[in-house]
Amino acid sequence: MAFFLDSVQLGLEYALMAVGVFITFRILNIPDLTVDGSFTLGIVISSVFAVGGHPFAGLLLALLGGALAGTVTGLLHTRAHIHPILAGILTTYGLYTVNIKILGGPNLSLLNSKKFFDVITAAFPSMSRSAAQAIAIIVVCAAVVVILNLFFKTVAGLCIQATGNNEEMVRASSINTAAVKVGTFALANALVALSGGLLAQYQGFGDVSSGSGMVVIGLASVIIGEVLFGHRSILIGLISAVCGCVIYRIIIALALHYNLFSANALKLLSAVIVAATLSVPPLKGWIAGRLARRGA
């Protein structure tokens, strides 16, 4: 049971990253590979500020840093007309140098520094540290989902949805779709970096390589969520990204617990999950076509 709760908490720590991936991949309809870089950027900013005694400022600046990274990718895509996938790769590649520079080395320990969830233990001294940690992450995730759901009901949120759906029509409604895309990349990567910032303070260290392959984990989470909840509304989508991320962690934890495969196989497994699920619709079409041909 303990390991189950641990993986739920770990899942929630990554959940905002999955929500960021959901926003670009499913709502804006453009896959964004900046995630690997902006997640690490969040980790290093949050770590450095936590060590300096400002855990909250660390989270806030992680958020802004992520938004900046997303803006760079967005501008590369919309202004320089670079393919969005390549734009994301370029930003991530460049961020590697930036991240090492900010962190001052490949990793940094936060063992004796203040963390943001210490506020709760300070307010309720009787509460255990792990309970405080769990409550803090639940509150953050819930708040982000509620705020995003409200945002997507505004005109600006509607513009993002429509741009992912029929860009030409949005432009005809006198809306600058380039600005919409840049803004969406910024929003998504702000969430991704915030998730990295939270994770760094939870695990008590910052490492410049913890972001690698993050986009695949995000996609896997989004897809698992969709398999379970379907795509119905923005709210369901946001919640299913969070749940998908938690379930992803539970699956991994279970598999490791029962020694189904070694920890080294995780990345291959994640890649296979994403590739297999994304190929379901064309596979269905192919099978339907075969059956129709046989019937004729």
Binding site: K153, T154, V155, A156, G157, L158, C159, Q161, A162, G164, N165, N166, E168, M169, V170, A172, S173, S174, I175
Partner: peptide, 28 residues
């Protein structure tokens, strides 16, 4: 071409209605 197929009728009209209005963060 003129409308977003994934959005509802009301949402599509809301987008057109937002034209020229500068209330980006008002409820659509």
């Amino acid at each position: 071409k003129g409308s977003a197929p994934g959005l509802t009728i009301a949402e599509n009209i809301a987008l057109a209605y937002a034209r020229g209005e500068n209330h980006l963060f008002s409820f659509a």
